[in-house]
């Protein structure tokens, strides 16, 4: 035993927080198992004590798609080229529902896990990350519905389908950025709780979920693309339905995502040391 102890070289140094703390992503990697267990926990408890359980994960996208289809392909027609409207709507909605749920749960994640934050050490980034990743289970269910619907409508896959996961990944990245940012701000400013639902509503209207960005003029479309969801949704649809890619729009959105991620990490890093004292 003594020998075993001698071997240990792990040194924990505890100091006041510096003004520019390093990004300690290695520490997050070290705690990846905790990230996994917390995400699994969130998935498992999401539909506990509901009568129909996991069926909610199916019903939410299906019902919303149905409503949108009735509204926007019958009463107010939105041009979606060769893509059947239900497919078009579902492909946008599944990403939106993930973004919406994940950002909402992530922003409340510290408040909901206050007991963890005040009693144990682990990289704080794990908490909003786990909340975001837990949303992937629902996304997976929606994805399966999309596949079934595509088979039903006889959509042929093109060579670009391999890009679909890339755009989903970009969607996750931007969700992580927003979720992390709001989770940190929410510890200090509970205003987030009130402002977020409002912001999400506006964001939904400003994103090409139930309409195509093709309805905008060329110039406006570029400004529109600052919204990272624009590039993600357009890119994902192009990859899945084999329609042409608008790389300018996708490029602008990608730059947005990178900037967002950096801002989120910097804000988070600045605030995380005080979480246990503030929460």
């Amino acid at each position: 035993m003594a020998q075993e102890l001698e071997k240990s070289t792990e040194i924990t140094r505890i100091e006041p927080s510096g003004s520019w703390a390093r990004f300690d992503l290695k520490d997050v990697w070290k705690y990846r198992e905790l990230l996994y267990f917390l995400a699994v926990r969130d998935v498992k408890i999401r539909y506990k004590q509901t009568a129909i359980g996991i069926a909610w994960a199916v019903l939410q996208p299906v019902l919303t798609t149905a409503i949108f289809t009735v509204l926007f392909s019958n009463f107010a027609r939105f041009e979606t080229k060769d893509v059947p409207y239900p497919l078009f709507a579902l492909s946008g909605l599944m990403i939106w529902l993930f973004v919406h749920t994940a950002i909402t749960t992530a922003s409340n994640s510290f408040v909901n896990n206050a007991n963890l934050v005040t009693k144990v050490y682990f990289p704080r980034l794990i908490v909003p990350l786990a909340a975001t990743l837990a949303g992937l289970a629902d996304l997976l269910v929606s994805l399966m519905i999309l596949v079934i619907l595509m088979i039903y409508y006889g959509i042929n896959l093109t060579a670009h389908i391999w890009l679909a996961p890339v755009f989903l990944f970009l969607g996750i990245a931007q969700t992580v950025a927003f979720g992390t940012l709001f989770s940190a701000l929410n510890v200090r400013f509970r205003d987030v709780k009130f402002a977020l639902p409002f912001g999400l509503q506006i964001w939904m209207l400003a994103s090409p979920i139930f309409y195509s960005s093709a309805i905008l003029s060329e110039k406006w479309r570029l400004i529109f693309a600052i919204n990272p969801l624009v590039g993600i949704l357009e890119g994902f649809r192009a990859a899945v339905f084999g329609t042409p890619f608008d790389w300018t729009i996708i490029g602008i959105s990608c730059v947005s995502i990178v900037i967002l991620l950096l801002v989120a990490l910097i804000v988070f890093k600045q605030m995380e040391d005080s979480f246990a004292d503030l929460i």
Binding site: I11, R13, I14, T118, V120, D273, A276
Partner: peptide, 18 residues
């Protein structure tokens, strides 16, 4: 809480070996 790294000290330092 400080030795468990839950909160940071305002000044001073601590080192834990192992």
């Amino acid at each position: 809480k400080i030795l468990s790294r839950i909160t940071k000290p305002s000044s001073g330092a601590a080192e834990i070996y192992g």
